[in-house]
Amino acid sequence: MQHQALFTPVELGGVTLKNRIVFPPLTRQRSAQPGDIASDLMSVYYCQRASAGFMVSEGTQIEPRGQGYAWTPGIYTQAQIEGWRKVTDAVHAEHGVIFAQLWHVGRISHHGLQPDGAAPVAPSAIQATNAKAFIETGVGTGELVAPSMPRALTVAEIKELVALYARAASNAIEAGFDGVEIHAANGYLINQFISEHANQRDDEYGGSLHNRLRFLREVVEAVVAVVGPDRLGVRFTPLFTSTDQDRVYIGLVEQDPHETYIEAIKVLEASGIAYVSIAEADWDNAPDLPESFRRDVRDTFSGRIIYAGRYTAERGARLVEAGLADLVAFGRPFIANPDLPARIVNGWPLNPLNPSSLYGGTAAGFTDYPTYAG
């Protein structure tokens, strides 16, 4: 057995996972239209990868205003719930465990995606830069566009959004998911509230770090009330360096990312949730997270810790062996290798990824990657 640390069982909430390999949330833009409904093709895709110890669905918007990319699935209508039920049934038939990622993009959207062509919503009326939304320009065709100028949410609207997260969590359980993950990463809505760059409010949701974490705190508490702490995780992207000027990446680098995210993780610890997922910078030659940050995450949080970000099996196993991670996520390799755990444990070669088929399209580059034939 190769990389044995990745193949020991581990408890997550009230579930025993068969290995420590995670199939993470990966936007693929293949929902059925109209209605942004999880499709039969998506059921095949997730089922193919159910040998992961743990799976998280692609980001699924909690309401129509939460969409920033055409053809991504939602979880706010009955048809969407029923579509996801086909996915979860397929995964469970293969003895997989899958959480739904609850997503709201906030300002990373375009008026062409918003109800009645309205402005996107955000903590403050600050337009996102170095980011793109994706709009449909015809049947099966679309283009990347600059996000529209957002409008600032009122306090009453923020409270309504907290309730929408809770409703989406309830919908996810109805759809058969084993739990939910709150998407608080990559410059999307919750990350916008946390960030000193995107949040310039002067009320209880802005200013101090404590206030900027209030929305996260309220969403976590509301979702815990619906699903329980054992069935909840949260994802962050604690970037410690600025991105390249020509790179389209929507993470936000705080003046003190260490303090910002350790304080955010304290919010999670106080609620007793099952896990925190840390998505690292994933571009070529991206710097590693500081070792001091990894140690403080472990010291601060008593639940499970997941890391993601261009990990090899060897590097992931070392992180587990060091006690700094409990599970490791593999994104691109899992897209191209539906049987990734078997390939890792046996040392089998990996299929190459076809980058041109990542977003939108048909079964090509989605469900047609072969398993290992020997």
Results as ranks from 00 to 15, higher is better:
69 Y>F: 15
101 Q>K: 08
82 E>T: 13
99 F>V: 05
73 P>E: 11
113 L>N: 11
105 V>M: 02
57 S>P: 12
61 Q>L: 08
108 I>A: 07
80 Q>P: 11
82 E>W: 00
49 R>K: 06
95 H>F: 01
54 F>H: 09
96 G>H: 01
100 A>L: 14
101 Q>M: 04
105 V>E: 02
64 P>R: 14
60 T>G: 14
106 G>D: 06
54 F>M: 10
87 V>T: 00
84 W>I: 04
69 Y>T: 12
67 Q>V: 14
112 G>K: 14
65 R>W: 09
93 A>F: 00
47 C>R: 15
83 G>P: 05
84 W>E: 02
79 A>Q: 15
46 Y>N: 04
60 T>C: 13
97 V>D: 04
71 W>G: 01
80 Q>G: 07
62 I>D: 10
64 P>W: 11
81 I>R: 08
88 T>F: 01
49 R>F: 06
113 L>Q: 10
101 Q>Y: 05
84 W>D: 03
72 T>N: 11
66 G>T: 11
81 I>M: 04
76 Y>L: 09
71 W>K: 11
65 R>V: 13
53 G>S: 09
47 C>V: 04
102 L>R: 02
95 H>G: 02
64 P>I: 14
84 W>Q: 03
113 L>Y: 07
96 G>F: 02
59 G>E: 07
106 G>S: 09
73 P>H: 10
45 Y>N: 01
73 P>D: 09
107 R>A: 15
63 E>H: 10
70 A>L: 06
69 Y>I: 13
105 V>H: 03
58 E>G: 13
94 E>A: 15
76 Y>C: 13
99 F>Y: 15
48 Q>G: 07
110 H>S: 06
91 V>T: 03
79 A>D: 15
100 A>K: 05
92 H>K: 14
112 G>Q: 15
74 G>Q: 12
65 R>H: 14
82 E>S: 10
93 A>N: 08
61 Q>W: 09
70 A>K: 10
50 A>N: 09
71 W>R: 13
96 G>R: 04
58 E>S: 14
67 Q>S: 11
102 L>D: 02
105 V>A: 10
45 Y>W: 02
64 P>A: 14
87 V>R: 01
92 H>R: 04
72 T>S: 12
49 R>A: 08
72 T>K: 08
65 R>G: 07
50 A>S: 15
75 I>D: 03
60 T>D: 01
89 D>R: 11
86 K>D: 00
86 K>T: 03
82 E>K: 13
63 E>T: 12
53 G>T: 06
62 I>G: 00
45 Y>L: 05
104 H>D: 09
65 R>Q: 15
95 H>D: 12
78 Q>Y: 07
66 G>L: 10
106 G>T: 07
111 H>F: 11
95 H>R: 10
86 K>A: 04
68 G>W: 11
91 V>C: 00
69 Y>S: 12
